[in-house]
Design a protein around this nucleic acid. Structure first.
Lengths: 244, 244
DNA sequence: TCATAAATGTAGTACGAATTACATTCATTT
DNA sequence: AAATGAATGTAATTCGTACTACATTTATGA
């Protein structure tokens, strides 16, 4: 219970609430452990709860009838999902898979809606969240239409690096991602992604591991874009933004 | 002023407000005419207002640095856009073009935020709107990755038919859309779309006109999908759902 | 009303990326 | 510790669709 409180308090969406509300949420929420690689949130089920990631990473996916997967996002502790339940979504359109052993906190939609009623500011915050994710999607849609796999891959790598990358002392960034997941994030075949990775490796931009990558030269990866693409990606990599 | 009030009252997002609020909105909003094919809302500008379409159709687009266009949506009277301004968007990511001679109503973000504060329920409604559009985007993202142009085109035609199609007495549906716009909605080249249209025409599924299409057999178009795709699209065409 | 620009129709070519097919390496489990 | 399955690396082939290039039709406005 104390841990639950701690986790809720540390989620950006809830941190601003008064102690009393936090207590209430903590006491009314459910805490669940999810073993690595298990799906614990299923599309086509009733959209009746909101989830908060407490430990481990969680992969949000859409799976087509033919079994083809799109990864919408990979969430880190402190992030929430399932929030579409309060936007009129009756039936879930996503599934969620634990990428690592994970822990999530489940808040019923009812409870969350009550919270929204008590704190109108919360609706604003959820609105910002949904809006932000929508803008991200619009960007990906555009890239998907107009960018070749190489560019999309770079964008995805930098995006993921920013969200989950572990910065090493030497400036390289570790990314715990399989090529398959990467492909589903990029919207390309696993092989096409592997080919590109091999290419980048040859050019000294990254090193490969089992279910992981190591970006040894993130800045170099960025160059690939700026020569072929016109938009500003510097915000994707906010590392060492002010170096001599 | 009376007309402004009438228009606002007839927008789903505002219709539930009390007369007093409607009056207030009407008096504080600005009404603007936009000639056909003019852009009147620009990406990269400050996100400082919300728009309501009153007359004509409005095309919402994203344009890349290289000038490539994606059409996010085509709006009809009563629909709003620019609502991302209240989701933390500082700078607009869309542009808006009048497809026909159009009229729009402009509400400042400040005014809209005040409205949100006075009516917490409004935040919920905007949330639903943004959430709905996000879900639509996710669907398109998936289609873009896994569906060939033919299927995406059919889906787009049925989607647009539902939103803007003028049903004729004989059951056919008129779609006022150029092939170029269609291509930008589908996420394909103009030529690829033209080829598919020619194919559908040959099979008696539609007829072509200048800047317009006529779906003579919407149900037949749907068949194309159900044989090759697995998901349920019947909701896209809610016409004659209950026929003998 | 004629000129100009935009939209449409079609065909050929080129290219990117999916698909198919394995061989190899690595992790997990019993 | 061996066995099984997953992840990776790579190559050959096929396929879809973008690109290029016009010819034709239709609208628009000078």
């Amino acid at each position: 219970m104390q841990r639950r409180l701690w986790y809720i308090k540390n989620a950006a969406l809830f941190s601003w609430l008064q102690e009393e509300e936090l207590q209430r949420l903590a006491s009314r929420s459910e805490m669940v452990t999810c073993k690595k690689n298990t799906t614990f949130y299923f599309a086509h089920e009733q959209s009746d709860s909101i989830y908060l990631v407490k430990q481990g990473r969680v992969k949000l996916t859409r799976t087509s009838a033919e079994g083809r997967e799109v990864i919408l996002d990979i969430l880190a502790p402190g992030e929430i999902f399932g929030e579409l339940a309060v936007t009129g979504e009756e039936i879930r359109t996503h599934s969620a898979v634990a990428v690592d052993d994970a822990m999530v906190c489940i808040i019923t939609r009812q409870e969350f809606e009550d919270l929204l009623k008590r704190h109108p500011e919360m609706a604003l915050r959820v609105l910002k969240l949904v809006g932000l994710r929508r803008r991200e999607l619009e960007m990906r849609l555009e890239d998907l239409i107009y960018q070749p796999v190489a560019n999309r891959l770079v964008l995805t790598l930098l995006w993921q690096a920013r969200r989950h990358g572990a910065r090493q002392a030497d400036g390289s960034i570790n990314l715990p991602l399989s090529q398959k997941d990467l492909a589903h994030l990029v919207g390309a075949s696993r092989e096409a992604v592997a080919d590109q990775i091999a290419e980048f490796k040859k050019n000294g931009l990254l090193e490969t591991g089992y279910r992981s990558l190591r970006l040894t030269n993130p800045r170099g990866l960025m160059q690939i874009l700026t020569t072929e693409v016109e938009f500003d990606v510097s915000e994707l990599l906010d590392i060492e933004a002010s170096k001599p």
